[in-house]
Design a protein around this nucleic acid. Sequence first.
RNA 1: GGAGACGUAGCAAAGUGGCUAAAUGCGGCAGACUGUAAAUCUGCUCCCUAUGGGUUCGGUGGUUCGAAACCACCCGUCUCCA
Length: 376
Amino acid sequence: MNPVTFEITHIDKNSGARTGILHTPHGDVETPMFMPVGTQATVKFISPEELYDMGAGVVLANTYHLWLRPGEEIVEKAGGIQKFMNYKGPMLTDSGGFQVFSLAKTRKLTEEGVEFRNILNGDKMFLSPEKSIHIQNAIGADIIMSLDECIPFPASRDYAEQSMLRTLRWAERGKQANLHPETQGVFGIVQGGDNEDLRHYCAEKLVEMDFPGYAIGGTSVGEDKETMKRMVGWSQEMLPFNKPRYLMGVGAVNDLLEAVSMNIDMCDCVLPTRIARHGTLMTSEGRINIRKAQYKEDFTPLDPECDCYTCRNYTRAYLNHLCRCDEGFGTRLFSIHNVRFLIKLMEDARQAIKEDRYNEFKEEKLHNMKFDERGF
RNA sequence: GGAGACGUAGCAAAGUGGCUAAAUGCGGCAGACUGUAAAUCUGCUCCCUAUGGGUUCGGUGGUUCGAAACCACCCGUCUCCA
């Protein structure tokens, strides 16, 4: 029995966008959804209980970081990641594939795997596709990711091809290595850079391996919106309609709205939490930087349309003050807001899909948030 | 009353003859951030008609080719002793 399954609950008659339910050992969650990222077993400044209560659904953690500290065996002894951090809902761990990209200066790639430097003490650390899965087995998330290489943009076609073929071989190795196939589902990751045939080929081969879900990787690494849209489009064309599709690393509002149009079911991103720490807040009228002088005497709620704790209780003037004072409570309030904002955006998107008005919903949001015509 | 120290841009603080419109930090202004080595990073922050010009380092006067820097006096601040 597959631990992670998916059922489609509605297809928008006009846009073709879909809603669904992702079934996991830690509960069911509705899609399309946004998944907050808690790299070090914490979504920075937000408690796991708060995340659950704000409807976070799936929360991410990271293989590389937990491997280095505290070590996956500690998480395992704690009874798994959910018990370790006291999160009740489903979780997903990224494989370390993004660190192949983000820590590129200090790692070496071979067919066998990735030699990383421990960013904490400089030690050499070797991560193979099997090792990544075994670490994730110990961490114990519901959904675990196959080790891939997230390549930069731009990349040569030749490099994208070699890398993608290796990612495919790693996917096969990782899938075979899963020690907990009854409780943890492995997702394969489509790579191939900005190349239609490579994206198609990669997706087809992954589908032959038969994963419970498929991710699209290698996006939001500096490419323009049109390129991202192309890469996502090519990647998902070959994926089975009834399996969940996870677009990795996407979290800008316009990107999410476009992704939903393209039948993406899951997205994750550090963007809402990172920019929150820097004072940038997502609102129904677009992004604002709460530190700006114009909010000093603005005694209105941050976003009157938002139902989050921050918007229900505090004014822009107060948030402006906390930001200028660099107070941790402000950072908390900003993080809570941005995460809830994206979760609610997806809740609203689901409602619109169920009422067959997703196209109108999307256009209205893009217009209100002042995104230009190019959108995605 | 006596002795000493000091006054530099919004604030703090370097600089003691030319490389100084003046380090650095804070504050202020603007921007970036997309599977987190990020509570981070990048610009700008004396004035202007601006790849140039103008006026600055408590005040005034002086020394010098040249002064924030050296000298004199004045104003002010602080510390210690009475």
